[in-house]
């Protein structure tokens, strides 16, 4: 596909009516669009930098239940050493890793499949999409509570299993199953978001590309994986990194459904940080955990940021 400079919409967009043989004497090299970034940078600098700085300061100080207000004694690396020595952290990392993998698979694989099915515009797809978005928009307090009831020992799911002749299952009481339950509910809650984003990306794929491939004899599966999927690489990339960030920072469903239990079977890293900071008031401990999680995501983020440079236009 080549761009026709004058008769296409590009030409029209720049001011129709210019005589076709009037070419400017010098093609313009666009300058870096720094002004477009300005408002965002200013706002974020004014609002977000201070809390981040405080978080770092907390992590390197000794702030506990009694000295949040007042001067903070310097603690150096003591908090980090204490956190790394805490056996609960290893457990939390394992839990986080499992939940992250579940969310990645669900968002990227299931998200792609569901978006592919829902991309066509019909009444049924609109209805399903609206249902999914409506449920996604419910706060985790509400949807988490619903699943807590549904999965409890005398809840709807176990009643159904009972009717089918099975024994009741400890969805939320068994340490291994509880993790699966919380993970699946989190994936269920996140799927509409992934679907929405991927679907919007798919709608931007030019139809004639797909039609050309179909005329060449490609079947649906091949079209999706060989043509659509590569075009969605930036979208999949951002979904992946957002899923990782969410897994290392969010714990809403854990909080509502199991409170990190049974024991610490579903306590992930951000939950541990929250519990340290706001249940036990060990604010420095919580900040240290949060900073470690941040450092870990940073390790993933830098290669991501470098790799996306290939995506950019000149």
């Amino acid at each position: 596909m080549t761009a026709d400079l004058r008769s296409g919409k590009a030409g029209a967009a720049l001011g129709a009516g210019r005589p076709p043989d009037c070419v400017p004497t010098r093609a313009r090299r666009v300058t870096a669009p720094w002004a477009y970034l300005l408002a965002a940078v200013v706002l974020l600098a004014l609002v977000c930098v201070y809390p981040l700085a405080e978080l770092v300061h907390l992590a390197f100080s000794a702030v506990g239940p009694t000295n949040l207000i007042g001067s903070w004694p310097w603690a150096g690396l003591a908090n980090f050493r204490a956190v790394l020595a805490n056996p609960e952290l290893m457990q939390a990392v394992r839990v986080t890793a499992e939940l992250t993998v579940m969310l990645l698979v669900s968002d990227l694989v299931l998200g792609f499949v569901v978006a592919s099915v829902l991309v066509s515009q019909s009444y049924s797809t609109s209805a399903v999409m609206s249902l999914m978005v409506f449920v996604w928009a419910l706060p985790p307090l509400v949807s988490g509570t619903v699943w807590k009831f549904l999965l409890s020992s005398n809840g709807a799911v176990n009643s159904l299993l009972g009717l089918l002749g099975f024994q009741p299952v400890d969805f939320l009481a068994s340490p291994t199953l509880a993790l699966w339950s919380v993970g699946l509910v989190t994936c269920w809650a996140a799927l509409p978001f992934a679907t929405l984003v991927l679907r919007s990306g798919m709608l931007a794929v030019p139809r004639d590309v797909i039609e050309a491939a179909a005329i060449d004899g490609a079947r649906y599966g091949k079209i999706q994986t060989r043509i659509v999927l590569p075009l969605l690489r930036p979208t999949m990339g951002i979904l992946a990194i957002l899923a990782v960030i969410y897994s290392f920072q969010g714990f809403n469903f854990i909080y509502v459904m199991t409170e990190g239990g049974p024991g610490t079977a579903t306590a992930n890293v951000p939950f541990l940080a929250y519990q340290q900071a706001f249940t036990s008031f060990e604010l420095s401990g919580g900040a240290a955990i949060a900073l470690l999680a941040l450092a870990f995501v940073l390790v993933l983020a830098v290669p991501y940021a470098l790799s996306v440079r290939h995506e950019e236009h000149e």
Binding site: P175, P262, G263
Partner: peptide, 23 residues
Amino acid sequence: SSKIAQMQTTVGTELSDVVSGQA
């Protein structure tokens, strides 16, 4: 003690471990 909240959380977590058979 200023650590009373932490102490109660410890007890609760260990109790949860015992009930769920993890300890």
